[in-house]
Design a protein around this nucleic acid. Sequence first.
DNA 1: TAAAATCATGACAACGATATCATGATTTGC
DNA 2: GCAAATCATGATATCGTTGTCATGATTTTA
Lengths: 339, 339
Amino acid sequence: MDRDQRAVARSTIRDVSRLAEVSIKTVSRVINNEKYVTQETRARVEAAMSRLGFQPSFAARALAGHRSHQIAVICDNPNPWYVYEVLYGTRSRCQRDGIRVIAQPYDRASPALLDDVTSLVDQVHPDGLVLTPPGCDDIRVLNELARRKVPMVRIQPGIFPEMTASVQIDNVQAAYDMTRHLLDLGHRRIGFIVGDRAYAVSEQRLNGYMRALGDAGQRVEMELIQQGTYEFGSGAKAAEQLLKSGEPPTAIFASNDEMAAGVLSTAHRLNISVPKQLSVAGFDDAAFAQLVWPPLTSVRQPVRLLAEEAAGLLLTKPGVNQSIKIAYELVTRESTAKA
Amino acid sequence: MDRDQRAVARSTIRDVSRLAEVSIKTVSRVINNEKYVTQETRARVEAAMSRLGFQPSFAARALAGHRSHQIAVICDNPNPWYVYEVLYGTRSRCQRDGIRVIAQPYDRASPALLDDVTSLVDQVHPDGLVLTPPGCDDIRVLNELARRKVPMVRIQPGIFPEMTASVQIDNVQAAYDMTRHLLDLGHRRIGFIVGDRAYAVSEQRLNGYMRALGDAGQRVEMELIQQGTYEFGSGAKAAEQLLKSGEPPTAIFASNDEMAAGVLSTAHRLNISVPKQLSVAGFDDAAFAQLVWPPLTSVRQPVRLLAEEAAGLLLTKPGVNQSIKIAYELVTRESTAKA
DNA sequence: TAAAATCATGACAACGATATCATGATTTGC
DNA sequence: GCAAATCATGATATCGTTGTCATGATTTTA
């Protein structure tokens, strides 16, 4: 409470070294947790640091060393929940190591993406990059970054899986499981709404759906498959197509929760009761999956965990192109029921 | 496209100065758009910069100058949409000026908030800070930041409005208008769900509700006012209290959209038709207000714009404690109708 | 037209850390 | 018991910019 009111000028490593009566290099060793410092010296330096309220300057460390102690998250995803989870996950893992997170939000498919990402890298020299779809599948971006040799981890990459480290869930299997779930409930005509083809996961989820039908000895009927954009409106429209057709499905599986919400709204509008007359399933288990009526059955994609693991790879094994698979979870709620 | 493949080592201001045959100081002048550089010299330097693909190092600029060219957004709000909008708004305004955005996500009410914010400021020395509720009303944080003389702008501050620059909407008037809207539709018993009292806007919205009733010559009945937490579940529970009481309301106004969604779910569960038997209104107009059924009538809080203005203040008038008021908008959708 | 003001540029120190290399003390290996 | 390895520390150069101040050229002012 009675902190020094004049303490506006911050203290530097030199002040610490004077107070602790050691060289600045030794202080630097303590800051960076290097070995070759005796217990006693370390304690003296730490005492001096905390007495002075010393905080090392990121700018100076970045300039002198070869690390910036910052990692950047390139997020061009239109889904607020997704971006939020990626950010919190990354940050939570980085906090332990004293690494800062730079968020670089983009409008998806902005033509400036390439230039922005490269200038970010050239200006800030981040220690690593976390990339999310759809930007993580932009080959020009990947090439430029590879040329600069920045360690990067992609979340749910769609192309060239070996090109970088990555963290992902098995989208094919997840969609397979959800379809299987609907089949087990007795549904035979199951509609499917495909997501935006710019995202690699869209194909994967479609594949899972088709395989599950195949394994169950069912024919894949093309009129049961509608193209969407991952947006609410596209889900509503697709549902209308499906439900107004001659032989409407008794269940609809949308490739994400927003489109599933669209399906729900169409059902309401057409006075079709969910889940009595129609089962609806989504994908992602975004926060709002529980806010709609009825609460959505969905596949929980643990985005925060994916981001934490991505950051972990960046911090512990920079440059190693390892791939981690994370478990998903099928969450059944009230939007699906027996046929 | 035939970029130099060996260009792994980045070029520095010195390389540019050699190529353009000027001093490094002159290059620096061009980078920073200072005057006292002839058109001709400037052109030569710019040509050299682009030929070399030169990007100034943030670390070196921050170390040598008194600006870091970075601003930090302190976001400890639990609402993904809100954080997303703040981030995009801030970034979009900063991009023009070549300023980077550091996102510092926190768990709300984390005890580490104070230490984290101060160490961020001491380590990174951001040119400014954007603060959002509820963190922006933490007096310890405000004091520490003021002591460090960091320019800051608060979005929707609740306490000490004169202490920093700020950007906000008129929450009292907005809630007043929404209540008025419900009154105009013929509703006489209007329930209200208060938000978490840790947020200053909660009181303001309650005030608006009460004033509108008062101005309409109505008594404020305490049993029509329920306490919520801004979370979905609290809205659902509050709605149950209201609807199962002896004399249930014909309309419910929730202090945010999540709680309004909770009201909708309770209505569905109790088989009360919205808006026929019950009108429901929310606040924020978050993205998912349109994803629920029926789509929510709400007050559009232009968060992205608020953030853009906040960043604008930081960049154009750092240190000036100006306060900007932004217009809100009442958005009527299908969740409200005549009594 | 001389003095003052403004313009255009450059030399060099400084910012606050880390990297390299040197040095002497202590421990280890045979 | 002596060379070699390891440990603990420090002196000093360095990272790539901006800030300060100096200098001469050009324009404005009285």
